[in-house]
């Protein structure tokens, strides 16, 4: 009897709701914590980034106009789907970073809870982040936060635990889409597999195509294109070195990109930093 050959997963990019190979045809090798071959994820080029940005920009029209309640429901749905695939993520985290079952398990739980936490925020944001402003005239004056547009994300790579990549990815992606923005997430170069598996979750969670796009590859190749791309409205630089962040700030000044770095996973600041404050004046008594 021949022994069965295992069917290995091809790790592709996630652009506009579809899993595609890199336009360049490239891939790169990643190894597990013991130096053994793990997988060949796609190595995204600037053209894949361009495609992801145009998908994000198109999806922004619908996603930013969806009701906050609806966005919250979809974020909660992502948590549900992630829960259903718990075992896959646990074994992938163990394979990728060599942590114990217990640590991997706890990381997946935290990631699921984080989706739920951000899901709850989506329809409470305008109350907390907005205001009815006191003014000395016959007007009501409201300020409400509104989503910016397409946000590029370099998630934090420094993990609290030995693994930590899933948590970091969720911590940077959830607040962006919670706000009604759309995202282009460039997965950490050394640990891209959990990001791509998360894409499978996103693809089955009623999240409209193009709202979250995930690229894998070498971030240093993409940094300058992210900085200069005129359709990217904000960049989460948490996973970038200071010099890369400065480079993005310099080229990003051309179209006034919002460029931020975050330390904590759970904060309304992560949501509100990529929102614009819109103020409306309404005459009283008309």
């Amino acid at each position: 009897m021949m022994s069965r050959i295992e069917v290995m997963k091809t790790y592709k990019l996630f652009i506009n709701g579809a899993f595609v190979r890199s336009e360049s045809g490239r891939s790169y090798e990643i190894k597990n914590s013991k130096g053994k071959f793990l997988a060949n994820p796609a190595q995204a080029s600037r053209k894949d980034l361009r495609d992801a940005v145009s998908a994000a920009k198109t999806a922004f029209i619908g996603w930013s106009e969806a009701t906050a309640y609806n966005r919250g429901q979809i974020l909660y749905r992502i948590a549900e789907m992630l829960e259903g695939r718990r075992d896959q993520f646990v074994s992938e985290i163990i394979a990728q970073s060599g942590v114990t079952q217990k640590i991997a398990d706890s990381e997946v739980s935290q990631a699921i809870d984080l989706w739920v936490w951000y899901a709850g925020w989506s329809d409470k944001l305008s109350s907390v982040g907005g205001n009815q402003n006191p003014i000395a005239a016959q007007f009501y004056n409201f300020t409400t936060p509104e989503p910016l547009g397409a946000i590029a994300i370099f998630p934090n790579q420094k993990a609290k635990s030995a693994s930590g990549t899933l948590l970091n990815i969720v911590a940077s992606l959830a607040p962006v889409i919670c706000a009604g923005n759309t995202a282009i997430l460039i997965a950490p170069q050394s640990a891209p597999l959990t990001a791509m598996s998360l894409a499978e979750v996103l693809a089955t969670s009623d999240l409209p195509a193009g709202v979250a796009n995930i690229l894998t590859g070498k971030s240093e190749e993409l940094v300058s294109w992210v900085g200069s791309h005129m359709e990217i409205d904000g960049v989460d630089c948490s996973g970038l070195s200071n010099s890369d962040q400065v480079a993005i700030k310099v080229s990003g000044a051309e179209n006034l990109k919002r460029i931020h770095k975050f330390a904590d996973d759970k904060s309304t600041e992560r949501i509100l930093k990529f929102m614009e404050q819109k103020t409306v004046w309404q005459p009283i008594g008309i």
């Binding site: 791309h229 005129m230 359709e231 179209n255």
Partner: peptide, 9 residues
């Protein structure tokens, strides 16, 4: 220009 433009332009 050497960088991607936007529909805003």
């Amino acid at each position: 220009n050497g960088y991607y433009s936007s529909a805003n332009y």
